[in-house]
């Protein structure tokens, strides 16, 4: 079969099952808060409450909350935390998606990538909704006049890191889903990894305040993590709109795009090469 023919076959197959994809995304979102009193409102409440807790704890640890580097500590923390949450939630759910749908995969033919993809997509939708919390918090600080955040048109650049993050999550998700089929330990192991990641990425702190000398290997190692660049670019657009060019580095943009695309390709190839074996292990 020629490559072009194979590609059209995949496209037709995707079109046939795109309604299933939509159904699964809706299901994931609907069932998340079904039977809870506040329902969808948790999407707003959960990040808001964790932001308040973390701001209280860490401004206590670090002394005063905001300084020259961080314009507004709660907003700084919330923006990092929302992106981090999207990453960990989507990859964790994608990781479990093949195993948790084992009963279907064993009995009916379904393109298997639908499952990790639907998990990343539904987490993405809740992430987009939860971004409104960020708007509310920024508005709150601007109204009370304490540590106001200047919002400019540069905020549209925030779309760029979000798209990069989505591609990155999809790659990591497919890779973990494959690994999890063969080794169930991955789930436990990944919990620890995400905890480590929470402290490796500047969410509660600013990397400049760590006191690591410029050019040291530790600093390079921290910046090697694509999540670092993605979160920094997002903050440049949201928190530093008035001095955007000083904060938004093109170098970071190229690096994160390359890292996300490579991760996606690796995840996709690993998933694709092993998907016929899934059924024998789940």
């Amino acid at each position: 079969m020629s490559a072009k023919k194979a590609l059209t076959k995949h496209k037709d197959n995707f079109l046939k099952y795109r309604y299933l994809l939509k159904e699964l995304v809706v299901k994931n979102i609907k069932l998340q808060y079904r039977n809870s009193v506040l329902g969808m409102f948790w999407t707003f409440l959960q990040p808001l409450l964790t932001m308040i807790v973390l701001s209280m704890v860490f401004s206590f640890v670090f002394g005063k909350g905001s300084d020259g580097v961080i314009v507004n500590y709660p907003v700084y923390l919330l923006s990092g935390r929302l992106l981090y949450d999207f990453f960990t939630q989507s990859t964790k759910r994608a990781m479990r998606s093949i195993r948790s749908n084992a009963s279907i995969i064993k009995k009916v033919y379904v393109p298997k990538y639908i499952y990790p993809l639907s998990q990343v997509l539904s987490t993405f939708v809740t992430f987009l909704i939860s971004l409104s919390v960020l708007a509310v918090v920024i508005a709150f600080f601007n109204i009370i006049g304490k540590d106001p955040v200047t919002i400019t048109f540069n905020i549209v650049w925030a779309i760029v890191p979000v798209v990069i993050l989505f591609i990155f999550c999809m790659g990591v998700g497919m890779f973990l889903a494959t690994l999890n089929v063969f080794f169930k330990d991955v789930e436990n192991f990944y919990d620890v990894i995400t905890l480590l990641l929470f402290y490796m990425v500047p969410i509660v702190y600013s990397i400049d305040r760590l006191g690591i000398p410029q050019g040291s290997w530790q600093l390079r190692a921290l910046k090697l993590n694509p999540l670092y660049g993605i979160i920094e670019m997002f903050r440049a657009a949201v928190l530093h709109g008035n001095e955007f060019t000083a904060f938004f580095s093109l170098h970071q943009l190229y690096y994160t795009v390359a890292a996300a695309v490579v991760t996606f390709i690796i995840g996709f190839v690993v998933f694709y090469k092993n998907q016929d074996k899934f059924i024998l292990h789940i």
Partner: peptide, 25 residues
């Protein structure tokens, strides 16, 4: 092969009709 393999227990019958139908393509 096995009826109802694509059902979700937390979904209503109506929602499951759409979900199961979608699973069958």
């Amino acid at each position: 092969l096995e009826l109802g393999a694509g059902f979700d227990m937390n979904y209503s019958g109506k929602e499951n009709i759409y979900l199961y139908g979608a699973t069958m393509g």
